[in-house]
């Protein structure tokens, strides 16, 4: 393969307390790709993201980021290696204003966007710079949650359902943003329920079910695989 591998997930298992959620997840993300995890609610997509980020109590298997095994690492060290998460619940801090939220994640390396570049992508964030973070609309909070991880110089961005519950115009804006950051050389692992949206931004799709990856579909083969996909996702 010509592509350089950015992330290799092998036999990933994860537990919340006693409940065993991931049962050997395998997939790869190559440098510069946008890859999605598709799957029904409860399939384990969020748990996979959290496990990569070191946010799940117990995990085993292997997660190699740019040649470095991260499975036993603390989450702050995983972040400093170059991975950043935009969590499903967005994680905007109510005791911080918009600018403070934006500036919160420490810069971990070169290559991040400047504040003015982030404001150019999301003009709302500039207008509302002094507002309390959680006073923003859902769409603005999502922009803030994405914007703040673009600044840090992290090269692999984990976006967990960034379009969930948002109006179509904002979904389009987030789609443009994902294509823009791909052009800038970022690598994106995207969780989506909406595969029509996923098809407009992604190179490849992995399908998850019951804590394992059950299929991989190239984006250009998506149309040919619609029946299979409907079956997987139960739509």
């Amino acid at each position: 393969m010509a592509e350089r591998s950015m992330l290799e997930v092998r036999g990933l298992n994860a537990w919340y307390g006693e409940s065993h959620i991931l049962h050997g997840v395998d997939f790869d993300v190559n440098e510069g790709e946008v890859v999605t995890l598709l799957g029904r609610n409860g399939a384990g997509k969020t748990t996979t993201m959290k496990s990569i980020m070191g946010l799940v109590g117990t995990r085993s298997g292997s997660v190699v980021y740019r040649g470095q095994e991260t499975i036993g690492m603390r989450s702050d060290l995983i972040a400093r290696a170059g991975i950043a998460l935009c969590p499903e619940e967005r994680g905007i801090f109510s005791s911080l204003n918009v600018t403070e939220n934006l500036m919160l994640p420490p810069v971990i390396g070169p290559g991040g966007l400047s504040i003015s570049e982030i404001h150019a992508l999301f003009p709302n964030l500039k207008e509302r710079a002094a507002s309390q973070g959680t006073k923003l609309s859902g769409g603005e909070q999502q922009m803030l949650a994405i914007g703040r991880i673009l600044r840090t110089g992290a090269k692999l961005l984990l976006l967990d359902e960034p379009t969930e519950g948002l109006a179509p115009v904002i979904v389009q804006q987030i789609g443009r943003t994902i294509r823009e950051i791909k052009n800038r050389g970022f690598t994106v692992l995207l969780v989506e329920q909406n595969f029509r949206f996923a098809a407009t931004v992604a190179d490849r799709h992995y399908v998850m079910d019951h804590g394992v990856v059950i299929d991989m579909i190239q984006n250009h083969e998506l149309a040919a695989n619609m029946d299979k996909l409907h079956d997987y996702l139960g739509v």
Partner: peptide
């Protein structure tokens, strides 16, 4: 600001590299 954020959600603040 980091202190206030960590008071709200320490796990996420740590996952940002703090």
């Amino acid at each position: 600001a980091t202190l206030r954020a960590a008071t709200e959600n320490p796990a996420l603040v740590q996952a940002f590299g703090v």
